[in-house]
């Protein structure tokens, strides 16, 4: 039998009343332990109905621009660095335009566009297939649109990895701890046998901070509430042509990309 604090206090209270045999104590006990709401959000937390991100490829000019956002995430979230690519664990990474957007078949697009590295991360899909297949409800969608994973509940079945069309999820084949370069003592690690992915920095949103990659991007990445017509992100989406990854699958990805014009494409190949 498990009892919560309320029951426990009641029990203690009842036995105290019993032992002392006086009604005077009842007042004291009840007053001292009035239950307000026991759990609540942090006062400064950032709230939304559907979080989303815009990545402006025009602002990724050098290799450093990519490295900065990726290592910001890796360092904060204790992402292990496996030299064996079969064991790779990644929350944010890059792949070429051609691989990231296979449906964009611009036959005669310049090589530089095809080869342009694109930052990729979990799309926190509106209709996430990973959530649908998770047998333990370890992966679930929060009220603010984040696709979260409860590590305590993940059994490592990897159904979600098979279901995700974006390769956003990684499996811990071995204990990741020895492969973490420098542990961030404020954030947990993962253990062998669980799946992990980008969390949209849920722990930072709770403290009123922007995601780490967005903060490190010098304005190349924007983050905000898609359901708020006055949000910065909605303004950016209204004034730019953006694409999403494999949206034809019906997953409703929430990462929008501004690819930019020919100039940008021509420059693309020089990066990385």
């Amino acid at each position: 039998m498990s009892i919560d604090r309320r029951d426990f206090l009641k029990m203690i209270g009842a036995s105290a009343v019993f032992a002392l045999g006086g009604m005077g104590v009842v007042d004291g006990i009840v007053k001292d332990n009035v239950e307000a709401e026991q759990f609540r959000p942090e006062p400064g937390a950032l709230l939304a109905k559907q979080w989303a991100m815009v990545i402006d490829m025009r602002k990724f000019k050098t290799e450093g621009d990519y490295k900065r956002i990726i290592s910001a995430c890796n360092n904060i979230h204790n992402i292990p660095d496996f030299s064996d690519s079969k064991h790779e664990v990644k929350w944010i990474w890059t792949d070429t335009f051609e691989h990231a957007f296979p449906e964009q078949e611009q036959g005669y697009a310049p090589e530089s566009l095809k080869e342009m590295p694109i930052p990729l991360l979990c799309n926190h899909c509106e209709n996430p297939p990973c959530v649908r297949v998770c047998p333990t409800k370890a992966t679930f969608k929060r009220k603010d649109g984040l696709v979260m994973q409860d590590m305590h509940r993940c059994i490592g079945c990897r159904f979600c990895m098979a279901a995700c069309p974006y390769g956003s999820r990684s499996f811990n084949w071995t204990d990741p701890r020895p492969h973490i370069k420098k542990e961030n003592p404020d954030y947990p690690t993962r253990m062998r046998g669980v799946v992990e992915k980008c969390t949209f920095c849920v722990e930072r949103l709770a403290e009123g901070k922007m995601p780490a990659c967005v903060e490190a991007s010098n304005g190349a990445m924007m983050f905000g509430d898609l359901s708020d017509p006055n949000s910065e992100i909605r303004k950016v989406l209204e004034s730019n042509y953006t694409i999403r990854r494999k949206s034809e699958l019906g997953t409703g990805p929430n990462i929008y990309y501004i690819i930019g014009g020919a100039d940008n494409a021509r420059e693309g190949a020089k990066r990385e």
Binding site: S2, I3, D4, R5, L9, D32, N33, E35, A36, E37, Q38, F39, R40, P41, E42, P43, A45, F140, R142, K143, D144, M148, D150, H152, V202, A206
Partner: peptide
């Protein structure tokens, strides 16, 4: 039990503040 409740509150409901018995 308290830690289990904490886990569910923080991970599932996004409630990361706990109000103790003494407020």
């Amino acid at each position: 039990q308290l830690l289990n409740q904490w886990r569910d509150a923080a991970v599932r409901d996004g409630n990361r503040i706990y109000v103790a018995g003494d407020g």
